[in-house]
């Protein structure tokens, strides 16, 4: 199948499956995007994992642990989807460890109070959903089907996060302060999650043509802001952006300038937790090497 036929299939909204012919650029783009997504799920376990041992009630603890476990599950779906493109999980891990593959920069920020568990669920999962809902229609079959499954769980997480922060916003003075502080710290990193402005996003062109991405970074960011502002108002929290205001004409919110210097700096590795997150993952992988070897050796013995 030539590139013309491939494009025709995409234009007719037919899914591309693992054994179908695809341009090398399409395959590469998918591996980069899906693995980045998978790594984000896995590294994203850490900032929330930081509070499992300290969750303030049995219910809160079980919800949080189940949520972080879901993230591991999402990572698993996504690695599997990625493996259908001819790359192994070991290679994907390797790329993460040497810094060749990235993960979402949001997870390089520390979680300092229990309110951060609310902010992450509400804002970070909220932002992820906006992106993932549009990815349910992505052109690559395994990725698209993975997204359908993931979206169901993510919307649950988003509601749970919102419940945590809402509860705190109507709680004691200290709890309210923690809730507002969490919003202050996570707001800007959350809206940066959608990536650079379309004008500065060189790869968007092909990704849109191939229907890997269905909406641009700026469109997704605007969707997220529009749906989140009201949620903050409802629980009496203030979004830390003095320029945020409703624009009647475009029927959507205007918002302030994003600090792209911070964004790129964190992407380049200078966030508060970049080193810690990666080292944690590398250590777990190394510590588990003897277990994986033993399992392999045992399974080999059973076959003989």
């Amino acid at each position: 199948m030539s590139e013309v036929l491939f494009q025709e299939k995409i234009d007719k909204e037919q899914k591309i499956e693992p054994k179908d012919w695809m341009p090398e650029g399409y395959r590469k783009h998918l591996i980069r995007q899906i693995s980045q997504h998978a790594h984000s799920e896995i590294i994203g376990m850490q900032p929330e994992g930081n509070w499992i041992s300290r969750a303030p009630s049995l219910r809160a603890k079980m919800i949080l642990l189940a949520k972080v476990q879901d993230e591991a599950g999402h990572g698993l779906y996504l690695y599997s989807a990625c493996e259908t493109l001819g790359i192994s999980r070991e290679e994907l891990n390797q790329q993460l460890h040497i810094g060749k593959a990235k993960y979402s920069s949001i997870f390089n920020y520390p979680t300092l109070t229990w309110a951060d568990m609310g902010a992450i669920g509400w804002l970070v999962d909220g932002a992820a959903i906006v992106n993932q809902v549009s990815l349910q229609k992505t052109s690559y079959g395994p990725y698209s089907r993975g997204m359908v499954k993931i979206c169901k769980e993510e919307s649950f997480h988003q509601r749970q996060g919102y419940e945590i922060i809402a509860e705190m916003a109507k709680g004691t003075k200290e709890q309210k302060e923690m809730a507002q502080d969490a919003l202050n710290r996570f707001w800007w990193p959350s809206i940066m999650m959608f990536g650079p402005h379309d004008s500065d996003s060189p790869r968007t062109g092909n990704a849109m043509k191939w229907k890997i991405k269905r909406k641009t970074n700026d469109e997704l960011r605007q969707d997220f802001i529009n749906k989140t502002v009201g949620q903050a108002e409802l629980i009496g929290l203030t979004i830390p952006d003095p320029d945020l205001k409703w624009n009647e004409e475009k029927s959507s919110y205007d918002f302030g300038e994003i600090n792209w210097e911070e964004f790129w700096s964190v992407v380049e590795g200078n966030g508060p937790c970049n080193e810690q997150r990666l080292n944690h993952h590398i250590k777990a992988h190394k510590d588990g090497a003897w277990v994986r070897e033993a399992a392999k050796a045992y399974s080999k013995k059973q076959k003989n």
């Binding site: 944690h280 777990a284 994986r292």
Partner: peptide, 13 residues
Amino acid sequence: SEWCSKGPTLEED
């Protein structure tokens, strides 16, 4: 629960 994110494989985690 301390094992969360530290398992020897993702499945085991």
